[in-house]
């Protein structure tokens, strides 16, 4: 499959700071679920922000459909790439419907109202995430899982090609993690490309096809399928800790555990 997002010699540093990324290269294949794995502070969020365009790279190129992303008009770019930050901070109460409807923003010319087609898409997105019964509930009154579903529905309403999600599993219990991943996995079958950053390695390996492993010093250690990427060696390098990688007795997938350090 062709790459939808490619970075070449991507470098980035926050203003007046040490460089965070230097010459990062990878490509994300269209229609896959890719997981960014790595320790805290390895730059997973920053990488997603760079791809989403909310922060600007210092150097290098990001290609979207083989065309430098800078050459896209802003409006076209934001219609193709949707980004969901890890935490959001709404200040006023909004209903689930209103939040999903807000996803139409990049698609609507200024000063236009929602038309029947918009309502249809909002409806569809709510149905995909099973939100119809919660339509008129306030976001502040939802559970953690319902919040995540609402937010994912909201960015789906943007009709993007690529969804970048920062820690979509954080704060969710096991069934909801599975449910969210299932939803995301199904989206890839509908030709969406999904990139997530996550700490839930074992959960993610059950659904993601591609893995990008980042190390604590902001380098890409490995990139590829689970078996070749998430090896004991690679994980140890990335996290500066010893890992044990085996086969899950029930799912036959990967099972990754950290080795308990001896008390000295």
């Amino acid at each position: 499959m062709n790459p939808i997002l490619t970075t070449k010699n991507l470098s980035f540093r926050y203003r007046n700071d040490e460089p965070l990324f230097e010459n990062i290269q990878f490509s994300i294949r269209s229609g896959t679920l890719t997981a960014l794995i790595g320790p805290n502070g390895s730059g997973k969020s920053t990488l997603l922000r760079l791809l989403s365009g909310t922060i600007t790279k210092t150097d290098g190129t990001i290609l979207l459909n083989n065309k430098p992303i800078d050459l896209f008009p802003v409006r076209e770019r934001i219609q193709k790439i949707a980004f969901l930050p890890q935490n959001i901070f709404p200040i006023f109460p909004l209903t689930v419907f209103e939040i999903v409807a807000m996803g139409r923003f990049p698609r609507k010319p200024i000063l236009t109202r929602l038309n029947p087609k918009d309502y249809e898409i909002i409806e569809q997105c709510m149905n995909i995430m099973n939100l119809k019964p919660l339509e008129n509930r306030l976001y502040s009154e939802l559970s953690g899982g319902e919040c995540k579903r609402t937010l994912i529905a909201s960015i789906l309403a943007q009709e993007p090609e690529v969804l970048l999600l920062d820690e979509p599993l954080a704060g969710l219990d096991l069934p909801h993690q599975i449910e969210t991943l299932q939803h995301l996995h199904e989206l890839t079958k509908k030709s969406y490309t999904v990139v997530i950053a996550s700490h839930e390695i074992n959960m993610v390996t059950r659904f993601a096809e591609e893995f990008i492993l980042l190390s604590s010093n902001h380098r890409i250690i490995a990139h590829g399928n689970a078996e070749n990427t998430l090896t004991t060696d690679n994980l140890s390098k990335a996290y500066n800790a010893s890992f044990w990688v085996g086969t899950h007795p029930l799912t036959k997938g990967l099972l990754i555990e950290i080795k308990q350090e001896k008390n000295s």
């Binding site: 989403s52 934001i78 790439i81 949707a82 930050p85 709404p90 909004l94 923003f105 990049p106």
Partner: peptide, 10 residues
């Protein structure tokens, strides 16, 4: 709603 999402939405 959220400044970061707002930014990502243009």
């Amino acid at each position: 709603f959220d400044t970061e999402i707002a930014q990502a939405r243009g």
